[in-house]
Write a protein that binds this DNA or RNA. Structure first.
Lengths: 226, 226
DNA sequence: TAATTATTATATATTATAAATGTGAATTAT
DNA sequence: ATAATTCACATTTATAATATATAATAATTA
């Protein structure tokens, strides 16, 4: 996580310094803002560099909620709200506005670092691996496209989701139950043979490489390249 | 995640019902306890079924911390503490005792479900990646594959399950009854000689190492590497 | 107590049955 | 009109129960 930019917004200098020290120790680059207005200003300038914002709720001029709202109008950047004791009742409200996490003061360094890392893992991690390759099968998660040996193939929604699930779980045997619960909505109670139909179509579309989808008789399916 | 058992410990019935409803909607099986003593009782009985505990801190009789401590003496099961507003200062203290996560009341369903799923993914997920080795016999539980001296062998469902059962109980003599009850469905009342057939096939497929499946005359079988 | 035989348990090969999956087409939903 | 699902039938494969062979133990007898 080296060099990832994090913006800390808090009016108390002591608090900013505290957080900065902990996160800097983990190798993050820290930007600071002492109030909401400055925060928006900095965010505007460094939009594409900043990967996470730690945002205090109680601040003079522009409070945390207002900053949150403004940033959310144009960005999905992860935001952690710093709340003082007793402000928890706002949690639900905040989640609807797109808060990713709360940390309430006073907090332990452990928690701070843990939550920051968890969120960055989630968000940065995904973006880095947008395109994956499995021995000629290339899946572009951003574009939702798949190609086999350089040739694009057309997959329907379910076919794509099912294939992606199999690929994400390369070498792991997946039961029909698991597949249904992960690829279909949790409230789907249809025929588990539906999976078979999709598998068949995917195999066909994958051509020669369709054989990598192994049948685990009595269990389900598994993607394995051999 | 279907059918995973979660134990909810809270003295307020309303709270238990609330949590139960959310988690049940996601396909989890819920167990409830209204105080610490009952929680320990249920945990004792269902130890191997329960995969996660949601534990309220403030409870009559035995509070959450005490329950936590007792359970931690014998189990590493993931525990999420439910804290009321203003109890956050205990967080660090709790992490040292082995708390996996905190959720402070009031919480949003989103948070509850998200944290529960995140933890289960972490913990249950790991187990699946277990690869065990028995002197050249390698069993990959996630992939449901077995190899002997580096060469993959193909096992049918029953063969795999039976071999796994024998390996899991290395050096323990297993009666045919026990084997039937564990490898076959509980409602199977067929000929116990069926086991022999499968043992024979497994031995054959294991080649030289088939001899590690010892016959316990008058009893059953045992896996022992010598 | 050794040799012989009877008895029982397990090993192996075979086979009929049952179960799971493949497949293409029909139906239903979006 | 396309995708998703279900259906019906074909095909494959696993399984449990056969039958028979072999090995281990117990019983019998010399």
């Amino acid at each position: 996580m080296n060099g990832v930019n994090i913006l800390i917004v808090d009016d108390e200098e002591r608090m900013r310094k505290l957080i900065k020290d902990f996160l800097a120790a983990k190798g993050y680059s820290i930007l600071e803002a002492e109030d909401g207005e400055k925060a928006l200003e900095i965010f505007e300038r460094k939009k594409d560099k900043i990967k996470l914002i730690l945002l205090d709720v109680m601040m003079p001029k522009l409070d945390g909620w207002s900053v949150l709202r403004q940033i959310r109008q144009e960005s999905k950047i992860p935001i952690i709200m710093l709340t003082a004791r007793g402000e928890e009742q706002d949690e639900l409200f905040g989640f609807e506005l797109g808060v990713d996490e709360y940390i309430s003061k006073p907090f332990s360094p452990k928690i701070l670092v843990a939550r920051v890392e968890a969120i960055l893992k989630r968000t940065c991690g995904d973006k880095q691996n947008e395109v994956k390759e499995y021995n000629g099968i290339i899946i572009d998660e951003a574009g939702r496209t798949v190609s086999v040996d350089g040739k694009a193939i057309e997959l329907s929604l379910r076919e794509y989701e099912l294939l992606k699930y199999l690929l994400d779980n390369e070498n792991i045997a997946l039961s029909r139950d698991k597949i249904l619960n992960n690829v279909w909505n949790y409230d789907y109670y249809g025929d588990s043979r539906t999976i078979d139909s999709h598998i068949k179509k995917i195999r066909h579309k994958l051509g020669k490489k369709g054989k990598y989808i192994k049948t685990m008789r009595g269990v389900g399916y598994k993607f394995e390249m051999k």
